[in-house]
Amino acid sequence: MVSKKVTVTNPEGLHMRPAGVFTKEMSKFESDVNIVFGGKDNDGKSIMNIIAACIKCGSEIEIQCSGPDEEEALKKAVELVAE
């Protein structure tokens, strides 16, 4: 497993549109994607999970990827939330 802590810079946080883009991109990877926020795990491929997690702009999250393409998945994930 690879992981990285990042700060969400999208002004809307991980809400409808950003969450939609995120899950869509993550679904392209084979690896499991987990977002740790506030001590809880959230499935990075589930838009419902991510919206319910209420991740606001400026939040610190940890992204964990595990699977055959974990490096690429993590790179893309970080790029999507912290750009």
Binding site: M16, D43, S46, I47, M48, N49
Partner: peptide
């Protein structure tokens, strides 16, 4: 398109 993702979400 977000609605499409939501309804396709197995959660």
């Amino acid at each position: 398109m977000g609605h499409v993702l939501m309804i396709s979400d197995s959660a």
